[in-house]
Design a protein around this nucleic acid. Structure first.
Lengths: 139, 139
DNA sequence: TTATATTATATTGTATATAATTAAATTGTA
DNA sequence: TACAATTTAATTATATACAATATAATATAA
């Protein structure tokens, strides 16, 4: 019986894990001026589109649970980028809503996707292929 | 000016980040019987190939720094899977070496790559494409 | 040779991640 | 209506990640 399947170079998950971390690392110098971490940034991406939503929906969109989101959202609230409030209809639901300050931050982020695209040395076509395979894995 | 580039669905990094986490999550039930986390598992993958190496080389292979590796390697040593020792020639170097118990664990891991391959719903060809694009990003 | 620079690991501080548990609110049902 | 089941967040415990700093050992240069 061969152990080849256990060689690090034969793993698919490892480059997925490593590339994810390396790309997120590239965001740091771009996000530092905005005072955001990568995870906080993707929360803001969603809020820039949705304005208001509950924590459960946010977690489903971002594949994150309340253990990650609760403290993170409290920090963003402390920074004045969003407000947290319980739903009147069903108090189990916590809604987060972007503030004006949160909306203003969007203009500072406008060039980040372009800057990241530039520092990945893959073609436009490879990027599309990667995108579609990754979403296939996520289904 | 359009904000389309800031839509969560137009990000490439996000599915990379999410897919990485989701695939690692799939490892958990397979690794629990071995008493390993995913990060500990990839360390063992390297040690099953190399037997002995220093922390710096390991970090370069796995894209991890001493802040992550130092406590993790101490845990694996406590489990008896490896031993840590300073180099006599240059005491700055810490070498880790797999133990017999560590080697024996390999047989319990032999089916993990196959099991993971089965639960990713992508074709063999897509897997190869994904692999090559990810390594292109890592260069 | 002695001061300086470099290298390798460890430590510290901050921020995720996630499983498991808890607690509060709501819903479904006998 | 009661009360069990479900839902939603929050909390707890454990394990990463990683930047920044510290420390010890070694190499290098004046």
């Amino acid at each position: 019986m061969s152990y080849d399947a256990l060689k690090i170079d034969n793993q698919l998950c490892f480059p997925l894990y490593a590339a994810s971390k390396e790309v997120i690392r590239k965001y740091k110098p771009l996000l530092d001026p905005l005072g955001l971490t990568y995870t906080q940034y993707i929360v803001m991406l969603v809020l820039w589109q949705e304005q208001k939503m509950n924590v459960k929906s946010l977690g489903e969109v971002l594949y994150l649970d309340s253990g990650t989101l609760t403290p993170l959202l409290k920090k963003l609230e402390k920074q004045g980028l969003l407000v947290r409030s319980r739903s009147k209809e069903d108090e189990r639901n916590l809604y987060i809503e972007i503030t004006d300050k949160g909306k203003e931050l969007k203009d500072q982020a406008i060039n980040i996707p372009y800057a990241i695209g530039n520092c990945l040395n893959i073609s436009e076509e490879e990027a599309k292929t990667l995108y579609s395979i990754l979403y296939k894995i996520l289904k």
